[in-house]
Structure formats: C-alpha cells, structure tokens
Design a binder for these strands. Structure first.
Length: 491
RNA sequence: CGGGAUGUAGCGUAGUCCGGUCAUCGCGCCUGGUUUGGGACCAGGAGGUCGCAAGUUCGAAUCUUGCCAUCCCGACCA
C-alpha cells in the first residue's frame, strides 16, 4: 500500500483528512484557514452545483452576482445580524501597496487608507437588501427570486477541510415577497429542494426541522435546516433556509406599494448550501479503503481497466473497450478508460477504490474469450462477471442500484442512531456511547438548552417538522414538554 | 484565541537531547529492459535554501528568539 489511510476506528479525524488529501479532493494552502480544491473535488462541487442550479431555475429563481465587499456601515444596520457575524469578519482597510523605503519589500501604503472600510462578505444579506431597495417599488416587482453562486469569508479560529474553512464556496438565495405566508412557503420549498438533493443525489438521508432560537441564523425569524448524521455519530447541518420576516426590509427600508396603494415592508428569505456538502458526502459514506461516491454525483461513474500480456491482446481489448466507452457515453454515463501502461491493474484497482469511483470494469484476454467483463462495485466491494452483450444496460441498472443501496445503508444507520431517552442518565450514556441523535424532552427554554450544551457538548440540532406531539418531562429540569427534540454533538 | 504536538526531496521518515564527511532509508519520479487477473521486478539516474527569518558560533537540520503553516483538544461557528 503506497497510500495508507488511517482506519476510522483508530482516528476518525485523521481518516477524514486522509480521504480528502489522498483521494485528491483538496490540499492545504499557503494561507491559514484556506484550502485548495483540486480538480476531483471541484468536479464533485460542479456536479452538486449543476443539479442544484437546475432545481433553483425550475422553481423560478434567477442567478445574479453581488459584490464581494460590503461597506462596513451596511453590516451594522440589522442588529442581530452584526451581532452574529462581527467576530469573524475580514476587513479591507487599504487599497494600495508600495515599496518599503527601508528596503523590506512591499508594504501597505499608509496614505491609501479607505475612508470607509470594506468587509469581505460573510454572507450577502446586507448588500443585497441595500440593492433590493432600488429594485422593489410595487407588488408587481414581487416576488423577487434571486440566487448567487459565490465565495464568502468567515474568519474561523479552527478550520477543517471542507467542513469549516475561512473561505468557502456556496450559493445563497435571497428572495423578497409580498406576504409572510408566501415567504414562509418559499423557505419551506427550498428546504424541500435541499432535502431532495441530499437524499436523492447524495444518497444522504436528512432530517428536516426548525432550529431553536439559540441556533437560529443571525437576523432570521425562523431557521429551517436539514441535519445529516456522520459515521462517527456526530450530526452535521447540511443546509439552511431562513424565514427573515421583515427584519432586513426594515433595516434597509425596502417597502412596496400593495394593491390597495398602501406601503408595506416586504418579506424575505435566504437559503444556502456550501462546499461543506463535500465533507458531508465523504463522512456519510466512505470506508477505510477510501471514498465511496454516490453514482449520481460522482465525477467519474465507471472506470475501465485493461488486463493484457502483450500488445496483441491490448489491441483486441482496446477495440472492445472503445466501442463500450462510446456506448456508455451515449447512455450519459461518465466513464474513463485507464489504459496507462505505467501502472499495473492492481495499483489501478486500489487507486480508483480510494477515489470512490462507483463501478470498475476489468477486461482481460480471458474475459474476451468468454465475452464477459469483470464488474466490481465500490459500495459493497462485490465483483461479478457480466456478459459484454447488453453491458451498458446492466451498468445503468447497477449504478441505480448502488445509488439506492448507499442511501438505504446510510438511512438504516441513521435510523438506528435516533435514540429516544427519558432520563438524564440515559441521555448522557447515549451521547457518550452510541452517539447519534438523541430524541429527548426539553422544557423549551434557551437557558436549559445552554445548560445541556455546557454539560454534554450536545446541542439541539432541530425540532423535526411534523414532529409527533407527545407530552413528557424535560430531561434536565423535569418541567413539562410537549414534544421530543433532537439532540446531538455536531460538526 | 488558549493548551498540546509537528514541520528534513512529491509522500512517509532517520538524525536534533550531546553543534563538526549527516543530509539516512523506503515509496514515488526519470531512462532502459522484463512484466501486467489486487498496490510488479532488475539495472542505472535525477531530486533537498533540513518551514521562514534573525541571532550565538571558526562551524547550525541540531542551540536561542521571532514568525509562518498543519494536526489534535477547548471557546466560537455553516
């Protein structure tokens, strides 16, 4: 083994790092807290982006682009918003460099100080609502449904590849509506879009829910989320959708004239997912041999490896494979024929397993004689010989089966890790033991939530939508509770 | 931002305590050949400002100081 991967059981964090680095998804960079996304990792993001972008367009949204820089004064217009982000903002103070007169290279020119400092966007609500003010006058201008694909910067103290970096890529939708009901419906619709994407493309089951006030987005009335469970039993927020009420409309004075010719503040939403999804994907499915990517998102779905003893055999295999590749591509399958001569088949097998390619086809002289190919699937590491006749159809079915199997496996794990508990002892024991989500009663106060967090490091991940109402007693205070909420330790 | 650890060739490492032919070994890389059904073998070869910068010294990978980056644990967060 030339590329050792740390076992999950040995060191989960190191396992994750190994997969990301050795799987070729990303590299560390020369800049603290920032990462380089390598082509294979970016390919994953492109796949996610393409699917999501189509879903956004299909639900009536348009893409636009707003500035990277936000005047400092904008950020402070919404009190809760600045409160939430102030501690992690990068600030641009100067606009010019000059040669150090003392010969120390280049320095910031003290003459070139900005009159108003600029904040590198940690999110774009403020610059967007400042803009919307000039775009919205009448109810006929509504709804305004905009999305942007962008990078944002949050100066994080502790970073982890994909999961938390100072700069990350995301999309942020920002919509304006005439009524609260319409804005709430939009918030919920986009949450559904995210959940559908996570489950049907990423094969990652998620729980849709609403955040408690403690966990709410800075400036939102309600924050909805999708929560996923990683293999170490920690939860990960995979996407959020916020109902912003009229908070930003009021902060930026965005009013419209309604049908009755009266001025009203507009109602807002924002929603986003980020490159963090790549981290979620890695941790949800992969094993100690490497990545396991769901076919619908995998940059490469099928890899074909030739096995030959001489040029004559190679030529015959080439001929067969070239026809197969054409057919697979015709069927819309992302396929690569790896006939590089410098690596032997065994090396390639291990390499593509590390990279999580869902299906590997090996084709040798012996197979040609029998008119078969050896087809190996990455998700459960089984192999079988399939006839070369109709192989494309079989591969299509196999890819679908892998996608479904990965989802089922993740869902079984997730479902087995939602544990209802009724006492504090059980609660602590479950968190420390099997981990995962713990469904417990809570008295509904931020103080109790905070106390539980301090004692156990577990937070309320969400109150699931359509949560069954069942009276009980708060696990910490014993006060009455009308429903269970989901606790977990989280990324 | 606090605590701990690390940084020597693309990767992993020996050497650091006790300064002086010490820049070691494996993988990878290049050339040629033999190979090819689970990370091949032989022969030859290239590659390093020892994280960066000052300092101590006749002499620094090794000692001192500062800085940078990464990992782990905490506080904060998507």
């Amino acid at each position: 083994m030339s590329k050792e991967i740390t076992a999950r059981s040995e060191d989960y964090s190191q396992w994750y790092n190994d997969l990301v680095l050795k799987g070729g998804l990303a590299d560390y960079s020369a800049v603290k807290g920032c990462m380089v996304i390598k082509p294979y990792g970016f390919g994953l993001w492109e796949g996610m982006r393409d699917v999501l972008d189509k879903k956004f367009k299909d639900t009536g949204h348009q893409n636009a682009y707003f500035p990277l820089f936000i005047p400092k004064s904008f950020l402070s217009k919404e009190a809760a918003h600045i409160e939430g982000f102030a501690k992690e903002c990068a600030v641009v103070t100067h606009y010019r460099l000059k040669n150090d007169p003392n010969g120390g290279g280049v320095i910031v020119d003290p003459e070139a100080k900005l009159e108003e400092e600029l904040i590198v966007r940690p999110t774009s609500e403020t610059i967007i609502w400042n803009t919307y003010k000039s775009w919205i006058q009448s109810h006929r201008d509504l709804p305004l449904l905009i999305n942007q694909w962008a990078n944002v910067v949050r100066w994080e103290m502790r970073t982890r590849l994909f999961l938390r970096t100072a700069e990350f890529l995301w999309q942020e939708g920002h919509t304006a509506h005439a009524t609260a009901q319409e804005a709430v419906a939009e918030t919920r619709q986009m949450l559904d879009v995210y959940a559908d994407f996570a489950e049907n493309w990423m094969a990652m089951p998620v729980i849709k829910g609403v955040k408690t006030p403690n966990e709410r987005f800075a400036g939102a009335v309600d924050t909805y989320c999708i929560e996923a469970l990683m293999q170490d039993g920690k939860a990960l927020q995979a996407g959020t959708s916020h109902f912003l009420g009229q908070n930003f409309a009021k902060a930026f004075d965005v009013q419209f004239t309604n049908k009755e010719n009266k001025l009203e503040y507009v109602w807002a939403t924002s929603w986003g997912v980020s490159t963090r999804l790549i981290g979620a994907l890695v941790m949800a499915h992969s094993d100690d041999d490497g990545l396991i990517l769901p076919p619908r998102i995998a940059p490469l779905q099928v890899v074909i490896v030739p096995i030959y003893k001489n040029e004559e055999q190679k030529a015959r295999i080439d001929e067969k494979v070239n026809a197969l590749v054409a057919e697979l591509k015709q069927a819309g399958i992302r396929v690569k024929y790896d006939d590089a001569d410098h690596a032997r088949p065994g090396w390639k097998f291990a390499e593509y397993e590390l990279k999580g390619v869902p299906v590997r086809i090996a084709l040798g002289a012996r197979d040609l004689e029998n008119n078969v190919a050896e087809v190996a699937r990455r998700d459960n590491k089984t192999k079988e010989s399939l006839s070369l006749d109709g192989l494309t159809g079989a591969i299509q079915l196999l890819l679908e089966d892998i996608q479904q199997n990965m989802y089922n496996k993740a869902k079984t794990y997730r479902d087995e890790h939602i544990t209802p508990v009724d006492t504090w002892e059980e609660f602590v024991a479950t968190l420390d033991g099997k981990a995962g989500f713990v469904a417990a009663h809570w008295d509904g106060t931020p103080e109790t939530e905070e106390a539980i967090k301090e004692k156990t490091k577990a937070t309320i991940r969400c109150i699931p939508l359509n949560n069954p109402q069942s009276p009980g007693q708060c696990i910490l205070t014993g006060k009455p509770s009308k429903e269970r909420v989901l606790f977990a330790r989280a990324y």
